[in-house]
Design a protein around this nucleic acid. Structure first.
Lengths: 201, 201
DNA sequence: GTCTATAAAGGGATAGAC
DNA sequence: GTCTATCCCTTTATAGAC
């Protein structure tokens, strides 16, 4: 039983779908209208221009994607637990929204300055707590001496790349959707194990 | 001292530059013509349509990218040496061509079937030798028992994602180009160390 | 081969009826 | 709010001179 969406919600859903897959330039207003089950004129009635509609989708995506990406880093829990928590929560999110990473990456590639101001990184230090935590762990001799940024880069790479590169991985390994999902579920534990094995002295 | 390029080469260079950054839909023929120092009509004289020009660039990219990505996997050298060789060669390539991964990813996202037939994976098993090699290593007890695909996915993720996500990493860590490059150079050794630490029983 | 000028198509945006 | 019809700018593609 389907819940009847408002027209605005139908547009959001359709626009999200099309923009995720084709980007701003590749998307057609006609295509979005068709998918939403309305006509082009009504799209413009709700969102004036294509850019504004795109901007609305970007805003929505940013509001869910970046909190999930960064919220774990500054939590006040032990280092090892933090890595396990991150991969578990982040991969869960990516399984639900597999197209978002590629969308965000292209967004930043094509307009780094806009995204920079949108995120306001100067006001919100996203990893200050983690940087300090890693420093303490290194000094205590709990983990090897390595650039803290290499740790974060590695964890994010291991988690997010398989989703960005999923069409290629599916071709290379001849995977169907179910097999791919199973491999991603396994990574929730594989990734923290790998990272900790590396960091243990 | 610059070598004078033929018109066709000037078009290739210009089109590559624009298509890498903006994709098929975002690129403008006028823009490519300007960058090549010619006019639009001459573009069409050489390559009939925008799609054909794009296809020519794709062909060129595929011819360098996939060999670099896959050639190491089936080499007849020990497992550990293979990982070190791969990260070294692959990251060298990515430093020289940082825009290619994102270009290829988007290509496959938007047209998986075309890329599939282009690559002809059925004829060229890209990882059969490596799969067997990992099986032998596991049976000999040299590495832990883990899905061989997880190993390859992890190594590729660790190597290629930082380049795909470089604009975001530069924002998060406030990196300039030089610092970013230094971190990538360090990864040539960090990645194999991490993977081997994980796989050692 | 290379140019200028122009045709043709595509697609975002609006007018106006209901 | 929602539709049909249409405008008009942008961009691809071609014609034709040199």
């Amino acid at each position: 039983m389907k819940i009847e969406l408002t027209t605005e919600e139908k547009i959001y859903e359709a626009a999200k779908e099309i923009f995720y897959r084709k980007g701003l330039d590749g998307a057609r207003m006609q295509e979005i209208a068709d998918l939403a089950g309305i006509n082009k004129a009504l799209l413009h009635y709700y969102f004036r221009t294509k850019e504004k509609l795109f901007g609305a989708i970007v805003k929505r995506v940013a509001e869910v994607f970046f909190p999930v990406l960064f919220s774990t880093w500054n939590m006040d829990i032990p280092f090892e637990a933090k890595i396990y928590t991150f991969t578990d929560k982040y991969i869960d999110f990516l399984i639900k929204h597999p197209f978002i990473p590629n969308f965000v990456i292209n967004l930043i590639h094509q307009n780094p300055d806009k995204v920079k101001s949108l995120l306001n990184f100067d006001k919100l230090p996203i990893s200050a707590q983690l940087e300090e935590q890693i420093r303490v762990e290194i000094e205590a001799g709990n983990i090897i001496d390595v650039d803290w940024r290499q740790i974060i880069i590695s964890i994010i790479s291991l988690s997010v790349f398989p989703f960005i590169g999923s069409p290629m991985l599916k071709i290379i390994f001849k995977l169907d959707d179910e097999e791919f999902l199973k491999i991603m579920e396994e990574r929730k534990l594989i990734i923290p194990k790998m990272v900790m094995a590396w960091l243990k002295p």
